[in-house]
Write a protein that binds this DNA or RNA. Sequence first.
DNA 1: GGAATAGTGTCTTTTAGACATTATGTA
DNA 2: TACATAATGTCTAAAAGACACTATTCC
Lengths: 250, 250
Amino acid sequence: MSDVNEEEFLKNYDMSKYPNIAVTADLAVFTIKNSKLSLLLVKRGGHPEKGKWALPGGFVNIDESIDDAASRELYEETNVTVDNGYLEQLCTIGNPYRDKRGYVVSVSYVALIPRINKFFASDDAEEVHFFSADDVLSDSFDLAFDHKNIVRKGLERIRSKIEYSPIAIKFLEDDVFTLSELRNIYEIVWGVKILSSNFRRKMLSVPNLLIPLHEKKVSDIEGGRSSDLYQYDNAQEIYPPFTRRSLSEK
Amino acid sequence: MSDVNEEEFLKNYDMSKYPNIAVTADLAVFTIKNSKLSLLLVKRGGHPEKGKWALPGGFVNIDESIDDAASRELYEETNVTVDNGYLEQLCTIGNPYRDKRGYVVSVSYVALIPRINKFFASDDAEEVHFFSADDVLSDSFDLAFDHKNIVRKGLERIRSKIEYSPIAIKFLEDDVFTLSELRNIYEIVWGVKILSSNFRRKMLSVPNLLIPLHEKKVSDIEGGRSSDLYQYDNAQEIYPPFTRRSLSEK
DNA sequence: GGAATAGTGTCTTTTAGACATTATGTA
DNA sequence: TACATAATGTCTAAAAGACACTATTCC
């Protein structure tokens, strides 16, 4: 091989010599809806897997990062944004068999968002809906491609990550909240009952996790003592973690 | 749009309409060498970034999964296999700027292998070498592409994962080992000193982690009481985790 | 007052940090 | 015997599980 420099090498470089691989960004977007952990799905409007429910997502463009593609595709298909939520990469699946169109790599993400009402289908999506995560993972629910595996993995990611990271707060609809509301998130995500006194002690013992506002929540429809309000401070971790291992089933 | 069925749709499907994106599998392969956590790097034999040290890896073929490509590329470039080690996906980076050749997505992996002597450069690699992980991450060490970010992330993945997963054992060269040898792995990976009595109590308290062989290790070069030998059983997790937070610097 | 939920206090168990003591090998 | 490391035991502290009890709020 002749001793070309890098500039020369790049000038004649032919990217098309590589296999024809397309890349999608797909998102498992979770929220709490009707006291259930729920997942945002879109009904596919086009082939393949037409008419099946699938994770929102789509092909990465040549001029954007995969992370950017994830946000864009979510917004284009469902009009949902993760501005007040949490978004992290989950895993990447790539093999010749998962998509009949050809070799399609899926880079998947997990998102946590507060419950919202402003979502509606557009672009390729024929319909958009939040489903109970349990329902989606049941045998009778048919998801497009290998998206059920991604959902399973995403769910486990969330269930384990709220143990040591304060991201459960991202499910809350207001930045001012009560300990009961936060505890409720944990109970729903884990499907367990948590003793409120122990939960309180734990959360308040984490450095820089919660700021007490010394205000009471204005009474809801419920009977019972009104609760103190808190705000998220800036803790990046919950240490020691708040584990779910020894909690009893709900 | 006419109402074609899926078969018809796929027959005329043109994958080349998607952006020209290439996918690589790249590996951060760690081992313990000279009592240091070390990382396997290859010196790039071709453009771009020619002559720089880089993670082993390469382009995914059209007929293989990304996971398979990772193992294959590692073997082709370095003749290293992870048969007795551990391999997991780390993260995926994709944007238009990270590779001058074009849009190249890197799917990265972390591997843990016992110390080996049987590695040598082949294929694109001009040279193969294990470097101290600390050296690689120092400012003065120049790595190709954004591989330093991957190394940083891989190192943190390992340091946190050995807390709650028994993968530290994958660093050991023999499937029969002493508690001191295992403790030594933790001390090196975390850069801390661990009290042997507490380490012993912890490890032996994890259900199904270690099988005592009721044999002594045949004396090494050291003076001191000879130690009991153990084997890994089948525990998939260390719970409660063995945390590094309160350990003192080495 | 009764029901429901919030908040406080306390007892106990589990787990881990620190370190003393004993055991067993080599030089 | 001196020394080094392994193994055991013990004291203490941190953290969490369980639960009793008090405080508010709505009806």
